[in-house]
Design a protein around this nucleic acid. Structure first.
Lengths: 345, 345
DNA sequence: AGATTCTTGATTTACGTACATCAAAAATTC
DNA sequence: GAATTTTTGATGTACGTAAATCAAGAATCT
């Protein structure tokens, strides 16, 4: 049987109340006594029964999630995952409020962060935009004692507690190596389509891709980046233009969202088999394109993992506990047509 | 505030005891009354507080894990993860016993399964060998009311409850596509090194690899499979022979364990850069080889995920609950040198 | 030494559920 | 309609921790 607080009290020769004071950092315990209790805890290998503790505290965690609006499937999927987390609120003792803001609009995001502060939550999760006013708003939250986790896109200049997302530099590098090796010495320029250079994750992916391409396919020409703002219609227009302007186009790296447009433009051109295409995020559209051969490789971040990780970290921070960094690292998933999960995720 | 059993009793106009009888399927409730209570549960959206329930039950789950002995890093890593789960026993209310058996020995495995039955656990997790006597032993466990989960390697002919491992056919296909595309039309035969055709996972990987190679690099010659029994020393000997016998060797697919030997032989030959190598399982050795370029791509199954998933499934089965299949699907991870996790896992 | 502050003990209630017991009420059988 | 069985109610204890209260003891200061 695992030891309880009673066992500690007996072992240390103190009362239950004193054990409680030590365990919960309450004042009124002499250093000597505290040591005695801590030695008993150590000796018995006591671990607090979290379930019982939560039951006794009947604690709930009010959190705010700030997500961008927009038509792209990835962000909508993220919203779905947050909704799923909301549905688990009762059982997880969370109370989640969702705020929607226009995409790629730093001022609107900063305003939403202010609004979140007014709700006095225990923590905030936000898809960040890398802009000074956003940094200021995040730091204000932190100073108000509210935990902040950036989601999907990071804000390195701020005092945010944690980033729940993938290493986008590594993701870009991975895409670059795959592209370089899949091209295998083939000639022709490679195009890059981004969402916006305003968000950190897209900038990082671009840097990583360029570096890895330079290593795995030295001398290969990269066209200058075009920005599609994660909007399928805009992406379709841009890619159609690229295909028209560069008859010898060898590859396309789509590092943002809006893959529906990318796929439509490629398939309209009839050149989907000769253009090596690497894209991000597994959606029903990109999944179908991978199976049909229009897309050659897909990098993915699991939105569900990210949301659940963000909540775990926010909870831990709210309780003043450490998180195990390694456990909260979000993996970059690579999908070829052969290893797609069965359910369209 | 979320509703409790008291709220249901009030809503349904019955006593607490009756609600308890309904919730826990105890006898002595009329159909009409049962309906009334169930309607109240529905109306209030009651969800049982699992933490409180477990606390009240002070339930523990005795489980047995059966793992193969042997010198290869993957299985040792699996054992470490099981040990880690054992360390969490107190907090997870499990009591885990580990049985070690000689690798690739169906008779010994069947005997261990018999022994496990004698321990009368709630569930058994086993790295299976695809043999009739093992099927018989697993089925005997199931008939004794003990849940069985196969781990890493499956046993499709048996009545096991669940398989906690990757889709090895898909893993083999993925390796085949990567190999085919990385070779990019280069000539020369491709060698395949397996552990043993006795275990299901190796057979599946081989089938998948052959099929995908035929598609992505049609007409490429595959040498016949050699078996290294997941033993580094034996694998080293075999690979050295392969390299000597085939000066034009273009690629090696190592679908089992014992990568230390593979790497040693490749590097001793000095041909590690010209031979495209795809292997399985991320270990400190394979990680270093991926970074140095000796290995070109690595497929991985996260042993920690598999062990934790196996425990979740066993618990659910012991409680007679459903598992969400999608949630327990173990992903095939693909690592290139660019997306390696920071910690040597 | 006496007053004051700090430290500790003893005890109680609460969290939400599980489970057992005994008595009372209702339904069923003869 | 009495006897029997089935169903329901009332109540209490337990799980392990949190948190509060009040009294008693020890240490510190003057």
């Amino acid at each position: 049987m695992r030891p309880t607080v009673h066992d500690i009290a007996a072992e240390a020769g103190v009362s239950l109340a004193t054990v409680d004071r030590v365990l919960n950092n309450r004042p009124g315990v002499r250093g000597v006594t505290r040591d005695k209790v801590e030695r008993a805890i150590e000796a018995l290998g006591y671990v607090r029964d979290v379930a019982a503790a939560n039951l006794a505290k009947s604690r709930t965690y009010p959190f705010v999630f700030i997500l961008p609006e927009g038509d792209n499937t990835f962000m909508r999927g993220l919203a779905v995952e947050v909704e799923a987390a909301r549905a688990r609120s009762a059982i997880e003792r969370t109370a989640i409020t969702v705020l929607s803001v226009p995409a790629f609009d730093p001022a609107a995001l900063a305003a939403a962060l202010e609004r979140a502060r007014g709700l006095a939550p225990a923590g905030v999760a936000v898809v960040a935009i890398d802009a000074p006013e956003v940094v200021t708003a995040v730091d204000a939250l932190r100073e108000a004692g509210i935990a902040v986790v950036t989601l999907v896109s990071d804000l390195p200049g701020s005092t945010r507690d944690h980033f729940a997302g993938v290493d986008n530099l590594a993701a870009g590098r991975t895409a670059g190596t795959l592209m370089g090796r899949f091209l295998g010495g083939r000639e022709g320029p490679v195009a890059i389509v981004a969402g916006s250079m305003l968000v950190r994750d897209h900038r990082d992916r671009l840097d990583g891709f360029s570096a890895a391409m330079a290593e795995s396919a030295p001398g290969h020409r990269l066209l200058s980046v075009v920005e599609g703002h994660d909007d399928p219609a805009e992406v379709e227009r841009l890619v159609a233009n690229l295909l028209a302007d560069h008859p010898g186009l060898a590859g396309i790296y789509s590092l943002g969202a809006g893959n529906r447009g990318l796929i439509a433009a490629l398939e309209a051109s009839g050149r989907q088999k000769e253009v090596c295409t690497v894209a991000h995020e597994l959606t029903p559209h990109s999944r179908a394109a991978l199976l049909s051969g229009t897309i050659d490789a897909l990098l993915n971040q699991d939105a569900g993992h990210e949301v659940r990780s963000a909540i775990r970290v926010l909870k831990a921070r709210a309780d003043g506990l450490q998180v195990i960094a390694a456990q909260e690292r979000i993996r970059i998933e690579i999908f070829l047509r052969d290893n797609l999960p069965v359910d369209p995720a």
